[in-house]
Computed example of a mutant assay.
Amino acid sequence: MADYTTLTTPDGPFTLIAQDGAVLAAGWTAELDELLPQVHASLRPAGLTEVATLGALSDAVQAYYDGDLAAPMSVPVRQKSGPFRERAWDVLREVAAGHPLSYTDYASAAGNPKAVRAAASACAFNAAALFVPCHRIVRNDGSLGGFRWGLTVKESLLAREAELSV
């Protein structure tokens, strides 16, 4: 069993699924069907219970939107995949707000400069948006690239971070 809650944010509804104090999935949606398939099969909960708050996890989202851009990085996240992707997710948590990396630089930081496509795949399969900030990865020319939750949300997050991290 796991718990979930949906918060109201300036970028739209944000739903968190958590188990034992760790985020399993999160994103800008109110639809659980958009989040659950992202959770690795071995971590996918058998059932979900809606709660009003997830305590520190909900607080971290609110703190982010209140200007504490590092707050989500203090929250435990549970994701599972192969070694490169898991390392790449850890690296995403180290990318400073307001200082996005290119996919090429991200691949290098994850330990394999030639694995640009694998790095992009790590972003695409990241289930814990905001807590594993894949929105901080952009194309080599600085354009946004893709984002599961839409380019409008990605642009908003990057603009907020650029403004607050000056």
Score class of each variant (00 low, 15 high):
65 Y>G: 02
165 S>I: 00
61 V>H: 04
143 S>W: 05
40 H>E: 05
110 A>P: 03
165 S>V: 01
18 A>W: 01
160 R>H: 13
159 A>W: 06
129 A>S: 15
9 T>R: 03
69 L>S: 01
52 A>K: 10
37 P>S: 11
76 P>G: 03
165 S>G: 08
37 P>W: 03
76 P>S: 05
28 W>N: 15
119 A>I: 08
60 A>G: 02
65 Y>P: 07
156 S>M: 08
84 F>M: 11
43 L>V: 04
58 S>V: 00
86 E>C: 13
57 L>R: 00
13 P>D: 13
56 A>F: 03
115 A>T: 07
15 T>N: 07
32 L>R: 08
71 A>D: 09
93 R>I: 02
18 A>G: 13
106 Y>V: 10
50 E>G: 00
109 A>H: 07
78 R>Y: 11
59 D>L: 08
39 V>R: 00
118 A>I: 11
107 A>F: 08
39 V>P: 00
30 A>V: 08
61 V>A: 02
145 G>N: 07
16 L>C: 06
145 G>I: 10
159 A>S: 14
45 P>F: 05
166 V>D: 15
155 E>A: 15
136 R>H: 00
159 A>P: 07
1 M>W: 08
149 W>A: 06
46 A>L: 14
112 N>I: 09
19 Q>K: 15
43 L>D: 02
25 A>T: 06
1 M>T: 13
75 V>W: 08
16 L>Y: 03
98 G>S: 04
16 L>H: 11
117 R>P: 05
89 W>L: 11
150 G>P: 09
29 T>E: 06
135 H>R: 03
74 S>T: 13
153 V>M: 12
47 G>F: 07
20 D>F: 10
35 L>C: 01
52 A>R: 09
135 H>L: 08
